[in-house]
Design a protein around this nucleic acid. Structure first.
Lengths: 340, 340
DNA sequence: GGCCGGTGTGAGAGCGCTCTCATGCCGTGC
DNA sequence: GCACGGCATGAGAGCGCTCTCACACCGGCC
């Protein structure tokens, strides 16, 4: 049995060539005679050689790793499988390109510091960051690190729109909401209420804008607008408030499936039936939508795809730093089920 | 403005000492005069020095990273926030000890190979693995890598029970089920049915065993036993099958909250009310339990804690390889809500 | 036949760090 | 007053790799 971790040197000795040649073969650098190449490959296989990444990145100044920073102290992260999906997309794309995924979860103030130091320390080649809020410190941390960064979700700051070096991937929230409300109109609903998510997140703002687009108004009628917080309980409370006005709405567009589920509960508590009395449309098409009773009509966004695209944009700026890629908006799709 | 990434050498020159001394200060090694130590610390701060991890791990043979391997091709990963919770616990413990979390998501055959190579390549110091199934290839991969490994969830193989070097963390599924069914008995239920999860997973098997314990039987009565698959639809179908027998059960213990949610749906479809006609108890106490209507009585397990403990056990075997830690079983707790 | 250019290979430096070992300095004890 | 032990510090090797550069070799040309 050979040594547990043979070095380049060992492989070179075994194959009767120099370290440099083995290095060339291992890295696929051209300019090695085919028969020599084969011989080296045999030695590599025989000895079970695996390159030492520390030594390699010491000289190449590339770590082969990408940091994924998730700063979502809120319960929302746990409430739906959003991040699991996104991570899978990212992981798929990264591992196809032999990059490692380093997960940095941020919970408190101290974590921000830690992440800042870590990113600035050159341990990774690039960063992926999620759903920043207004004035999120991660914005500055990313900039200070000097690392190529791709954001998930449209950043809040309007000036980013113009700064082409700041790249993000998002789904078309506005159009998704437009489709959802359009469907309600098409099915004859006339008093369509909206339950919005927290309006310090661009996704919530954009979905509200889409609602207004579909109705041809610039802002929602107060009696038809309730604020939620993306949770089931928030959705139920918002629905209850909407039902206090008369005439009652004959449809509700909720900013996500969880709030729609809450709305369903509130409607049942009021003795109203869905969709006969009130139609309900959600947003996200994650599992809770299908679990709901009745199953929710909702807007699907391809989350795993979003992760993949984030990773691939990052890869591109890693490989061609001089030409930063453009941001990407992913289309959404209405899924009609029983609730509307 | 100093160089973007000053080296030890630069700090040494700035402080007027040798590299060795700076290294000692940075690593907290004793035997440096306090005033010199202070001086060096100032230089470090002034230059913004961050140690190069590649160079460090090249000589220490420690990477400062731990791989978390998640091989769950099934939809279940997405259906509940289980992994998000666990990851958070792990991340918390690891980052408190300055270790990085490397996420390896396994989806297909090729991924197993990739993970095997990666682990064997010495890129990480240890591994955390989740919910292996019977004959899971990860078992061999972990062994072949020679890395300290901690498993999440009791492994399937009975011989592991005796092999003290194989460490796992699990919640007390059997006792949790016992509590759940005990509660149903305490509240006067007499025909208590069970909906089990896939029986190639130890968690599902253990929960069934706990059900039997509480009833004082060795196996469930066939008319009171239905198989599910940990999904909402599976739970609904199983419940429908149970209702086909008469007399109908007056209570159901479902192997997880999702199946309990499905059972709720099936009961409503049959015109039965919960808990008046039939009491329902779930398992997990993840968000879907609270979203259900009525909210589910269920068994809570501290998932984040489980992750933390996994990480801390791994840390222990990293720091004291000669004395491997023992496996840990985490207690569970019944949460009583409206459904039972 | 000597010179040139191209190609394949090897020698060697050096990435930034840790750690061993040698060195210098001090205080103590006889 | 000198030998000695202990402690703080520095010099230097070396971790495993990549990459530049020099060298050897071969064919084609004048």
């Amino acid at each position: 049995m050979p040594a547990p971790h043979p070095t380049l040197e060992a492989v070179a000795a075994h194959a009767g060539v120099s370290r440099a040649t083995v290095s060339r073969v291992v890295n696929g650098t051209p300019g090695v005679r085919p028969e020599l190449r084969e011989k080296v490959k045999r030695s590599v296989a025989e000895l079970g050689y695996v390159p030492n990444s520390a030594a390699r990145s010491l000289v190449t100044r590339r770590t082969g790793a990408v940091a994924v920073v998730i700063a979502e102290p809120e319960t929302r992260v746990f409430a739906d499988p959003f991040f699991a999906r996104q991570l899978r997309g990212i992981s798929r794309e990264l591992s196809a390109n032999d990059l490692q995924l380093l997960l940095l979860l941020v919970e408190d103030e101290a974590d921000y510091q830690r992440v800042g130091r870590y990113l600035a320390g050159g341990h990774v080649d690039g960063t992926l960051m999620f759903s920043l809020h207004a004035n999120d410190p991660l914005r500055g941390i990313a900039a200070a690190s000097g690392l190529p960064t791709v954001f998930g979700g449209r950043p809040w700051w309007p000036e980013w729109e113009r700064d082409a070096s700041l790249v993000y991937v998002d789904t078309d929230n506005r159009d998704g909401a437009r489709q959802a409300v359009g469907h309600l109109l098409d099915t004859g609903r006339r008093r369509i209420a909206v339950i919005t998510g927290p309006l310090d997140q661009t996704s919530a703002v954009d979905r509200l804008a889409g609602y207004c687009d579909a109705l041809g108004v610039t802002e929602p009628e107060p009696a038809l607008h309730a604020h939620g917080d993306f949770t089931v309980d928030g959705g139920a409370a918002a629905m209850a408030r909407l039902l206090a006005h008369s005439p009652a709405p004959d449809a509700v567009f909720a900013g996500n499936d969880l709030m729609a589920t809450g709305a369903l509960r509130a409607l049942r508590a009021h003795g109203l039936s869905v969709p006969a009395d009130v139609a309900v449309v959600g947003y996200d098409d994650l599992e809770p939508a299908a679990w709901a009773d009745p199953p929710l009509t909702t807007v699907r966004q391809d989350i795993a795809r979003m992760g993949e695209i984030m990773a691939s944009l990052l890869l591109r700026s890693l490989n061609a730093p001089e030409s930063p890629p453009a941001s990407v908006i992913i289309p959404t799709e209405l899924v009609v089920r029983a609730s509307a």
